[in-house]
Design a binder for these strands. Structure first.
Length: 882
RNA sequence: GCGGGCGUGGUGGAACCGGUAGACACACAGGACUUAAAAUCCUGAGGGGGUAUCCCCGUGCGGGUUCGACUCCCGCCGCCCGCACCA
């Protein structure tokens, strides 16, 4: 060993140094006027909860690797960061700790910004935005007014989850087992007048465009398709027979199975159907039934167990295709008001719910679809509805038709007819997707810029009066919306008539804030919501990275917003994100004490004897149970604080570990051993670079590797260039774990050359050796630069290279070094590997065959006879068939 | 129930388009260095058999296609995720 011993790399000194330098040089500040090709990398911006967690580290490291790589590839890379800063936790902090939501939020932002900087992210902080800044929500209010004018906003009544203690609307996610998540009070269903964004106007567009989003995971596209939930069917009118019908002369239903109309045996109304309400006025039992349905709630669990119940209304309708027959009308608990028409016809033989209902109330079950090959005389439906394909029978003029043909036939049959003065049998497409209710009875959100006037009604706040600013002097000493309690804020003059009026005190759902921030980043200081030229230049986002938990809401809302902003002239795209990547979670083992309490990793000492792992408490020594590997969460205490990791190991080590091993779309398990392994590699690279510098100093003058290298030197050159090519491909495809593995291989190969003990003595110090080593080391540092940027800078400087590695262009692989001159071909006999031959790349088939057959193992298997066949796959394999 | 995905050593995972299964890493074992430990370096390893050349088995299970299957097809089993009374 000749190299002088090297100090360990000290990230505590080196990392802040490079972070300062990048900042001074404004290395990651990007100009909209830069002529180079653009690339927009975006990670989902965080909610400023106060601390970043390992999930953030993983997410932002991935984005940073891509951004730094693209930058080295010569792109003008936009890689911004901001804060999804409105939301309920800030109000809770205000209630619990008496701190103003704005103060709390801004403190959190400052803390988290420092943390993000400490992990060395190459972000353009000059474009930082926080959604709670007036500058941001001012623009959002403009968007709202534009949307209003464009007919994209509606004000309508809807049912909401109402917490009677906190006096606020709760999102579905905030209702746990029918109770408010904070108050614990049973949640009520209330009808409130709310503001809606008309997402459903774009149901078809949002659905169709999914096919073109080939840069998105299929899983997310499927989830959105299901969420939009398109179904095509027929609207049918059933004529109500005269009687106590509360004035109804017909009932309209929506069905996707009009082919089963001959099997209809009842009509069912939703408990929320207007007719049900009218009938209940004179029917106490029905009133009780409807109340019971409402009590039952809509929690998933309840629905799963709920049995089909109904109440006969006394009404009957004329069967539309069976002359002289009538059907009973029920109110049933399983019929939803907000899908279709809130009424169905039941065909028990071919729908499980209808069958359950029919069995309970003794209604006829008549099969009208005959499975292929079934005997019409014997086929019967017992407990299971038949929903498969077949031929229509028992159905008059539909008999003998296939299902699709029967649907068309029925549509034609009703076409042009009228019932009750309305067209019968209208073909219709229904979507599950509903309009987006954005009203929240909360303080810490973007005020909805409208005024309610007794004379003029709902009046938009004129543009000149924007922004509608949140008042600072609010109190949280009683439940409800502080904006509503504020002594003066809501009292204004009507912008139209000047008379006394009231501001809208609801604020917008925070999902509105995050539905357009990607556009704002393209020109964060623009006078309007966007600078059209900047937005056009940058959008769509080339690569968006975030968690799968946003597969529906955020991503669907953003897609709607892009269309709405397109319509109102703020952007030119319909799709905001060309590429989407959903990364996996960071998980950790869980630990439980003997008394069943969760224990934090730092309170646990792990022990291994052979391959058995045990754990005990760090202080008491009591045995600890090692539990399941789960997503890091405070409640299970299995969290690791990024700050502590950075303090102990440095940012580069944390980044490297987050990129290693696990494919980025899968969960990664945080382990002490894993982070230590990453730290070891960092030190190894540092040592390797300095060992190599020692070689360069001992043998000055030898620089460029030549084409003459052979043997091991040539192999290492090949390895270097192969790794350059592979790492580039891997990063482009976001396969960071593979890039990491390839870098390990290169480092291993170079280690042999750098040490006098392992390198062949004859070559050590020759011009070829030094040149190949230098090339390899420099490439290694460059390949590491996107992943361990600080270490790479330190090495780059130690190597005496000009400038900083962050500004160095990405290395190119020499194509000539990617192909081998001779190649090792495995030789199989009957598909089983028996040996290998080394042949020139351009060897003829005959040569290869001769070589292969002359292998001892092969000739032994042949036993003197000629092979049946020899298959040669060029550059791949030889298979001898005996 | 419907939809999507996955199943490879002790562990995380690799294997491009059907062509050497287990790259790379972690953990483990042995060795070197050290008074000792840590750190570092070297070596080993899918399972079974044999001193060894080498042989057999092996990618959840059972079949199939193919010269050749982790990869394609059919049928099972198990796990994960999403949606869920949507007519």
């Amino acid at each position: 060993m000749t190299a002088k011993s090297v100090e360990r790399y000290n990230p505590r000194v080196e990392e802040p140094r490079w972070q300062r330098l990048w900042e001074e040089r404004q290395s990651f500040v990007v100009s909209n006027d830069d002529p180079r090709p653009r690339y927009y990398v975006l990670e989902m911006f965080p909610y400023p909860s106060g601390r970043i967690h390992m999930g953030h580290v993983r997410n932002y490291t991935m984005g940073d690797v891509l951004a730094r790589y693209k930058r080295a590839r010569g792109f003008n890379v936009l890689h911004p960061m901001g804060w999804d800063a409105f939301g309920l936790p800030a109000e809770n902090a205000a209630i619990e700790r008496g701190v103003h939501p704005g103060t709390w939020t801004r403190q959190n932002i400052a803390a988290m910004k420092a943390q993000l900087k400490a992990i060395g992210l190459g972000l353009d902080w000059s474009r930082e935005i926080a959604t709670c800044d007036v500058a941001y929500y001012h623009q959002q209010q403009k968007l709202f007014l534009d949307f209003l004018e464009a007919g994209l906003v509606a004000r309508k009544q809807s049912k909401v989850n109402w917490d009677p203690v906190d006096m606020t609307v709760l999102a579905n996610e905030q209702v746990i087992d029918g109770r408010g998540w904070r108050s614990g009070a049973p949640v009520e269903q209330r009808e409130l007048t709310q503001w809606f964004l008309k997402v459903s106007d774009y149901s078809e567009a949002l659905l169709e465009a999914l096919d073109g989003l080939d840069g998105w995971p299929e899983k997310v596209r499927v989830m959105q398709r299901n969420w939009i939930g398109r179904s095509e069917g027929l609207r049918l009118l059933f004529e109500v027979l005269p009687g106590a019908s509360a004035g109804a002369t017909s009932i309209e239903v929506f069905t996707t199975r009009p082919d089963t109309i001959f099997g209809a045996s009842f009509i069912a109304l939703s408990p929320d159907h207007p007719l049900a309400a009218r009938l209940a006025e004179s029917d106490g039992a029905l009133r009780d039934f409807i109340a019971e349905c409402h009590r039952q709630g809509t929690a998933t669990e309840v629905i799963e167990k709920a049995e089909k119940h109904g109440h006969f209304t006394g009404l009957r309708v004329r069967h539309p295709v069976r002359d002289g027959e009538t059907l009973p009308v029920y109110v049933a608990n399983f019929v939803l008001m907000d899908y279709g028409t809130g009424a169905i016809f039941g065909c028990p033989a071919h729908d499980q719910r209808d069958l359950d209902f029919a069995r309970r109330y003794g209604l006829p079950v008549l099969p009208v679809v005959l499975p292929e090959g079934a005997d019409p005389a014997a086929f019967a439906v017992e407990d299971e509805a038949y929903t498969g394909p077949g031929t229509i029978y028992n159905s008059g003029f539909l008999d003998g038709l296939a299902i699709e043909a029967a649907k068309a036939r029925i549509a034609a049959h009703f076409g042009g007819r009228e019932v009750d003065g309305r067209p019968q049998g209208v073909v219709e497409v229904n979507y599950r997707l509903r309009d987006w209710g954005i009203s929240r009875q909360r303080y810490w959100g973007c005020p909805i810029p409208v005024v309610h006037c007794e004379v003029c009604g709902t009046v938009p706040v004129p543009h000149k009066d924007l922004p509608v600013v949140l008042p600072d002097d609010v109190s949280f000493d009683r439940p409800g919306n502080p904006l509503d309690h504020h002594p003066t804020w809501k009292h204004v003059a009507c912008p139209r008539c000047g008379g006394p009026a009231q501001r809208e005190t609801d604020t917008m759902d925070t999902f509105v804030d995050s539905s357009w921030y990607y556009a704002r980043f393209t020109a964060p200081g623009a006078a309007g919501p966007t600078d059209r030229a900047a937005a056009d230049a940058w959008l769509p986002v080339d690569q968006y990275i975030g968690g799968i938990e946003h597969a529906i809401l955020h991503l669907l809302y953003s897609r709607f917003f892009a269309r709405a902003m397109h319509k109102t002239g703020h952007v030119s795209v319909d799709e905001p994100f060309r590429g989407l990547f959903t990364q996996g979670m960071v998980t950790h083992e869980t630990y439980k004490s003997g008394s069943g309490e969760w224990l934090a990793p730092e309170d646990v000492v792990l022990e291994a004897s052979g391959e058995t792992r045990t754990a005990r408490h760090a202080e008491t020594g009591a045995p600890v149970a090692i539990g399941a590997i789960e997503k890091m969460s405070k409640s299970k205490k299995n969290v690791v604080d990024p700050d502590e990791i950075v303090a102990t190991y440095g940012a580069d080590t944390a980044r490297w570990f987050m990129l290693s091993d696990s494919p980025p779309e899968r969960d990664v398990q945080w382990t002490e051993a894993g982070i230590e392994g990453a730290g070891r590699f960092l030190q190894r690279v540092w040592k390797l670079v300095h060992e190599s510098i020692g070689v360069f100093e001992r043998f000055p003058g030898a620089v460029a590797p030549s084409v003459l290298e052979e043997g091991e030197l040539l192999e290492v050159r090949r390895l270097t260039h192969r790794t350059v090519a592979r790492v580039g491909e891997d990063i482009e495809a976001l396969r960071f774990n593979r890039a990491v593995a390839h870098i390990y291989e290169l480092a291993n190969g170079l280690s042999r050359l750098a040490s006098e003990e392992t390198a062949p003595a004859a070559m050590f110090g020759t011009a070829g050796h030094v040149g190949v080593l230098r090339e390899g080391i420099e490439r290694l540092v460059q390949l590491l630069a996107p992943m361990m940027p600080h270490l790479a800078e330190s090495c780059w400087a130690a190597l005496g290279k000009d400038g900083i590695v962050a500004d160095a262009p990405w290395p190119e692989a020499d194509p000539g070094l990617l192909v081998e001159a001779s190649i090792v071909l495995p030789v199989q006999v009957n598909g089983k590997r028996r040996g290998e031959i080394s042949v020139p790349v351009d060897a003829s088939q005959a040569t290869i065959e001769k070589e292969a057959l002359s292998l001892e193992a092969v000739s032994r298997m042949l036993g003197g006879s000629a092979p049946k066949k020899v298959i040669i796959v060029p550059n791949r394999i030889v298979n001898v068939v005996v």
